[in-house]
Every structure is written in C-alpha cells, then in structure tokens.
Measured scan of single mutants.
Amino acid sequence: GQVNVNNTTYTFPTPKLAKEFAQKAAKKYNLTVHVSGNTVTVK
C-alpha cells in the first residue's frame, strides 16, 4: 500500500500497515485520511 503525506509517498508491504501509518499521520498533523483504490492520501 502507498501513503501520500505532504507530497511525500511512503510504500508499505501490506495495505494494513499503510492504513495504520496513515491514521497515525492524520492524527499527528490533524489531517484527514482519503482512500482511493490502493493509495491513501493524508491531507
């Protein structure tokens, strides 16, 4: 799974890890998680 945070893309071996990372990043920066297919964007 891929996660985009502040124009930086992070790649994870599983969608589960990507989702967990996205949720932590969203909480940390007070942003929202947007899911589109296999790509998760935090903005």
Rank of each mutant, 00 (worst) to 15 (best):
V3K: 07
G37Q: 04
Q2P: 12
H34N: 07
G1S: 12
S36T: 09
H34R: 07
V3M: 11
N7Y: 15
N6G: 12
G1Y: 07
H34M: 13
K28H: 09
S36V: 13
P13K: 13
H34K: 08
V35E: 02
V33F: 09
K43E: 13
T11D: 03
G37M: 04
K16S: 08
E20R: 14
V42D: 00
V5N: 11
N38D: 03
T41S: 05
T8V: 14
L31M: 08
T8P: 05
G37N: 05
N4Y: 06
V40F: 04
T32F: 06
Y29Q: 05
V33K: 00
L31F: 06
F12R: 00
V3H: 13
V3W: 07
T9M: 09
V33G: 01
K27E: 10
A18K: 00
A22E: 02
N6R: 14
K19Y: 13
L31K: 04
E20K: 13
K19L: 13
Y29D: 04
G37W: 04
V33L: 06
P15L: 12
P13N: 07
P15R: 09
P15W: 08
Y29T: 05
N30C: 07
T9V: 13
V5G: 13
A22Y: 02
V3L: 12
Q2G: 11
K28P: 01
Y10F: 10
F12Y: 02
N38M: 06
F12M: 02
V35H: 03
F21V: 02
K28V: 10
T11S: 06
T32N: 08
K24M: 14
N6E: 10
T41H: 06
T39W: 03
Y10V: 03
P13H: 07
T8Y: 15
L31N: 03
A25I: 15
Y10I: 06
F12N: 00
G1K: 08
V35D: 01
V35P: 01
V33N: 00
K28R: 11
Y29M: 05
S36Y: 09
G37K: 04
T8R: 15
L17C: 13
F21M: 02
G1T: 12
H34Q: 10
K27Q: 10
G1C: 15
A25T: 10
V5Q: 11
Q2S: 12
K27M: 09
L17D: 07
V42W: 05
V3T: 12
Q2F: 11
Q23G: 05
A25V: 15
N4W: 09
P15M: 11
A18I: 01
V35I: 09
N38P: 03
Y29L: 06
V33P: 03
F12V: 00
K43T: 14
T8H: 15
T14S: 10
K27G: 06
N4M: 11
T32C: 13
Q23S: 09
V42I: 14
T39G: 02
Y10P: 00
E20D: 07
T41N: 04
N4L: 11
A26V: 11
K16D: 10
A26P: 02
N38Y: 04
K16F: 08
G1I: 14
K28A: 06
V40P: 00
Y29H: 06
T32Y: 06
K19G: 04
V40A: 04
A26W: 08
K28T: 06
Y29W: 13
Y10K: 02
V35W: 07
Y29A: 05
L17N: 03
K16G: 07
V5A: 11
K28I: 11
Q23M: 13
K27W: 07
F21R: 01
N4E: 10
T8Q: 09
V33S: 02
P13Q: 09
F12G: 00
Q23K: 14
V3C: 14
A22M: 03
A25R: 03
K24C: 15
L17A: 12
V5W: 14
P13E: 08
V40Y: 04
G1F: 10
V35F: 03
K27I: 08
Q23E: 13
H34D: 06
G1P: 13
H34F: 14
A26G: 05
K24A: 09
T14L: 03
K28N: 08
T41W: 08
A26M: 13
K19M: 14
A22L: 02
H34V: 14
L17K: 09
N4T: 12
Y10G: 00
K24Y: 15
T14F: 03
T11A: 05
F21L: 01
G37V: 03
N38V: 09
V35A: 03
N6H: 15
A25H: 06
K24V: 11
N7E: 15
K28S: 05
Y29I: 04
T14V: 02
N38K: 08
A22V: 02
N30W: 14
T39D: 03
V35Q: 05
V35Y: 04
K43V: 15
A25W: 15
T41Y: 09
N6A: 12
K43G: 07
A25D: 01
Y10M: 04
T14A: 02
A22T: 01
K19T: 07
T8D: 06
N38G: 03
V42E: 00
T32E: 11
Y10H: 03
N7I: 15
H34L: 13
N30A: 06
K19R: 14
Q23Y: 13
L31G: 05
F21K: 01
V42A: 02
G37C: 03
H34G: 04
T8K: 14
N38T: 08
N6V: 14
L31H: 07
V40K: 00
A18C: 02
G1D: 11
K24N: 07
Y10Q: 01
E20T: 06
H34E: 13
T39V: 11
Q2H: 12
V35M: 04
T14P: 01
L31D: 03
N38F: 05
P15D: 08
P13R: 11
L17E: 10
N6F: 15
V3I: 12
N4D: 10
F21G: 01
S36E: 12
S36G: 03
N6Y: 15
A22R: 02
